[in-house]
Amino acid sequence: MLAGGGFSRRHVWILAALVGAAVVAWLIFAIWPAWLSAALISKRAFFSAVLNGLTLSGLYFLVASGFTLVFGLMRNVNLAHGSLYLLGAYIGYEVTSRTGYWLFGVAAGFAVLAVIGVAMQVFVFRHLEGDDLRQTLVTLGISIVAADLMLAVWTGTTYQIPIPSWLDGAVTLPIVTAVRANGELIFLRYTFFRLVVLATAIVIGIGLWFMLNRTRVGMMIRAGVDDRAMLSASGINVHAVFAIVFAVGAGLAGIAGVIGGSVLSVAPGEDVRYLLASLVVVIVGGMGSITGAAIGALLIGLAEQIGLVYFPTYGVVLTFVIMVAVLALRPQGIMGRL
């Protein structure tokens, strides 16, 4: 490894990262030559796709981080996680349209879903502990009933949660997409709200990381992911830890629902979409890992949006190529531990 010129593997990695960063910086700030624009349709199309992918990744991360925490700690594949997302979106819509405050909608989405999450843990999963398959089947049954009842209450209509005026509008980004004939530069404009979504996801992600790595509860959760029996044996009330994790996981799905319902839309069937996203993100990222969920969400969100622009009818295939490649090379997921 240390052959010849004194380059260690670390040096090579740093060099590669620097070159990569330089290429990315050049892609962002340079005015693209014609051949590159020809290859990628246009700089504007490419960066819109990337930004859309990043915001979608943010949304996927919010949904999947709760899923991966619950899965990692309790070995419980919560197939009703998509239903939690959809219910959060509907609650957000009701609260926002009645009170007129969007932030109330977000808070209600989190609070109500957190309570439902705790209720699911206390009334359902505690009774089926240690039986993963039955727990999974129960969540499946819950998702069937929930989807049908939500359809009964909110019908098949598509809703859009109104966003407040201070989040509306578009901002100009320092990315030159083209130059007019008179030398004037055209900058990329992008929806402000979508950038807020991305920022929110990043803030929540950092918050989760701090909670897991710097607090006592986080320590218990991490210990539980590694060895549940040992955690319980060291005198910690695992049921309380489970309830907290379920509350946080379901609450995050609720928040994601409200945000997703504002930036995209709310309709029956969205539950399946976000369940799929959660599944793939966790398979790719590795179970129980927040960092893994972030990496997985980034890969899947970008793949989906870039696929949508460049090969519209084969977009899903790209997601699956990623999933299969990860399973082939690293079955436990990118950040997963065996």
Partner: peptide, 9 residues
């Protein structure tokens, strides 16, 4: 999980 992802996909 994997087979559900395959089916949905």
């Amino acid at each position: 999980m994997i087979t559900l992802a395959v089916a949905t996909g």
